[in-house]
Simulated scan of single mutants.
Amino acid sequence: MAHHHHGHDHAHHHHGPPADGNFGPAFAWGIGLNLLFVAGEAAGGLWANSSALLSDAGHNLSDVLSLALAWGATLLAKRRATERYTYGYKGATIQAALLNAALLYLALGFILWDIIDHIRHPAPVNGTVVMGLAGLGILINGFTAWLFRRGQQGDVNVRGAYLHMLTDMLVSVGVVVGGALVYFTGWLWLDPVISCLILAVVGVGSWGLLRETVQLGLQAAPADIDVAAVRRWLLARPGVSSVHDLHIWPLSTQDTALTAHLVRPGGQNGNLFLRELQHDLLHEFNISHCTVQLEDDLPLMGAHGCCDQQVA
């Protein structure tokens, strides 16, 4: 018989931020400030004859889109499950995180293309306006990244928004530093070199986000959960002689599910055992949604069994 448990009552014990963590104000501030900044950059770019500012305005507009995407996913994840979407809409956070990771690398490619274009076709610009707007960008993007700092360790969807803002802040730092060095030295080649170095740092630093979101999309066990350790822990439960068909996968960027068959010959107090199992899985491994089937003896495997045969 299958026994299903969902750890709603213990959500406050999650290692990351709570599942109902309210990032709405952070998203609202981030989107509002960046929209104002995009308008300012576009106007400044036209006035200062700076294609760099215009392209950066386009890039920042894509960041507004990614913030809206992440926010929409967090709101969608809170909707109740339906007869068709039996797990609810929590998976939207994984899809949004994956799309945002891809958008981040597209943005890096766009900036690199713009740098190459400026090397090939240099044009005089109003350096004071460019550095001034870039300095404003450091403040706005730095503040927005700071708003997401709390959740970025526990939620890959929030981390995607955090890295987008951090990337923009670092690019703006590069613009200011490069502009100042070019102003004082006259070495025009410094600006693209500094920009390329920053892009390389961001690209390498963001690779982990892309890799993790792809893994979550493929329903791999979350990186912070050791499946072998979970299997050993289950085998050590009272009366359990074997574990098979153990599956651990992410329901969202915060919620993890587990299904398993436990062979427990002549097991007594099955309900009490399962209740304690649910509690301990949440506190030991942050697995909030578990479905466990208790069996008296090892069943037939393979074509006559349940799923994949796994070594106990």
Rank of each mutant, 00 (worst) to 15 (best):
G127I: 14
L199W: 08
H121E: 10
L106M: 14
Q219L: 13
W113K: 11
A123T: 13
L163G: 02
V125S: 08
G109L: 06
L98A: 15
N126I: 05
G174V: 11
G142M: 03
N141C: 05
L106V: 15
L181K: 01
A220M: 15
L133R: 00
I94Y: 03
P124K: 06
L147G: 07
L99G: 03
G137H: 01
L188E: 14
H164K: 00
P192W: 06
S206M: 07
I198W: 03
P124M: 07
L209Q: 05
L199M: 10
M165A: 15
Y87L: 13
V177C: 11
K90D: 09
A134I: 07
H164C: 01
T128N: 09
V214Q: 05
I138C: 04
L99R: 07
G208V: 10
V204L: 14
F184N: 00
T86K: 14
G154A: 02
I138N: 01
M165Y: 09
L181M: 11
L166K: 13
N100I: 06
A97W: 08
F148W: 01
I225W: 01
V175P: 04
W146H: 11
Y89I: 04
T213Q: 01
F143S: 12
G88R: 05
N100C: 13
L209T: 03
L147K: 11
L210C: 06
D155A: 13
L216E: 01
A145G: 09
Y105R: 06
A220E: 13
L163M: 15
Q153S: 12
V177F: 07
L108R: 00
K90M: 13
I94C: 00
F148G: 03
Y89M: 10
R211T: 10
T185N: 05
L188G: 10
Q219A: 12
G174R: 08
R150V: 10
D224N: 14
I138F: 01
N141D: 02
A223V: 13
T213M: 09
A145D: 05
V175H: 07
E212Y: 00
